[in-house]
């Protein structure tokens, strides 16, 4: 398991990370989201040992990271970077060798990887002669060529077309299925929600939400959309009959009225339905599952939110 434990880091007077903790299991895909400048890249650089933390520790399977362990890590930085003049295959072999892979093994791995990404024909071309999409694929190969147990990818989906997104997602999924721990950051929250087993939301260097998307929904899981045709004022009557409910929003929908109603934990949703039916014709009664994007907005804009949830 990859664990970040109480990581802090400043740049001069700017606090980039403040006591950040989270964990990623092998075979788990972890989405790391936050606004620009929240500290995602700094956290990833610290995991890779490119930066040193001021405080805290990163561990893999309980051991503090050292070069021997980091050799098992693969990294795709946000700012894509390869030697423009090097040839694709040669470049991948070089990077694998820097991770301690023997030359022949490295050559074999690079050849296989290029084949699986449909880049075999470009193996002898210079990196700079490839299209941006293909360069992106080479960049991914560069993170994978030494068969890492931990993959850290900073914005791997940015700049990809829909086909590229699918291909990238498939590669990451196959690595996770093979037992790798994968962490990636992204602003495409629908993608994170679809792909990730767990999500961490970071704001101003602090973890403000961490867990599965269902866990993050938490209280918000008790929200229902209720569409009823009834006498005006029925909502007040409903609130009086079902204690503890909160009407988050309401408004007309043709002759009906639609309301978003939050149910306190432990309340039976059928009681709400019965009470509503007693007041008029119920046209719609649906549990509302907020998307990750909605959760993100509420967590990130809610300045008064509790500081932090402990990492699992």
């Amino acid at each position: 398991m990859l664990q970040l434990d109480g990581i802090s880091r400043r740049y001069g007077d700017v606090v980039a990370l403040d006591n950040l903790s989270f964990a990623v299991r092998p075979g788990q895909m972890y989405g790391f989201v936050g606004t620009n400048g929240a500290g995602k890249t700094t956290a990833m650089r610290i995991v890779l040992g490119v930066l040193e933390p001021d405080a805290g520790e990163v561990r893999w399977n309980g051991r503090a990271l050292d070069p021997e362990i980091r050799r098992e890590f693969g990294y795709m930085p946000e700012e894509r970077g390869l030697y423009p003049k090097m040839r694709v295959h040669e470049h991948l072999v070089y990077l694998a060798q820097l991770h301690g892979v023997a030359r022949l093994t490295a050559e074999k791995a690079a050849t296989q990887l290029l084949e699986s990404l449909a880049l075999s024909e470009r193996a002898a071309d210079r990196v700079e002669s490839l299209s941006l999409g293909n360069q992106q694929r080479v960049q991914l190969s560069a993170a994978l060529v030494h068969d890492p147990a931990v993959l850290v990818l900073d914005e791997p989906f940015s700049g990809l077309d829909p086909m590229g997104v699918d291909a990238m997602a498939a590669v990451l999924r196959s690595r996770v299925d093979a037992g790798a721990a994968v962490v990636f950051s992204s602003h495409q929250l629908d993608l994170v929600e679809r792909l990730c087993d767990a999500v961490g939301i970071i704001r101003a260097g602090r973890m403000v939400a961490d867990g599965t998307v269902d866990e993050l929904r938490g209280d918000a899981a008790g929200r229902y959309r209720l569409q009823v045709r009834a006498e005006p004022g029925w909502l007040d009557t409903l609130a009086a009959r079902v204690p503890g409910i909160v009407v988050a929003e309401h408004g007309p929908a043709g002759d009906d009225e639609v309301a978003l109603v939050d149910l306190p934990p432990g309340t039976d949703d059928q009681a709400l339905l019965d009470a509503a039916r007693a007041l008029g014709a119920v046209r719609q009664f649906t549990p509302v599952r907020p998307t990750l994007a909605e959760l993100f907005r509420s967590v990130v804009t809610d300045q008064g939110a509790p500081a932090q949830e402990e990492a699992a």
Partner: peptide, 14 residues
């Protein structure tokens, strides 16, 4: 060149 192409970050991770 390594800085401007950002390859330095990949290298320094290794």
């Amino acid at each position: 060149e390594e800085k401007s192409s950002r390859v330095v970050e990949v290298i320094l991770a290794a």
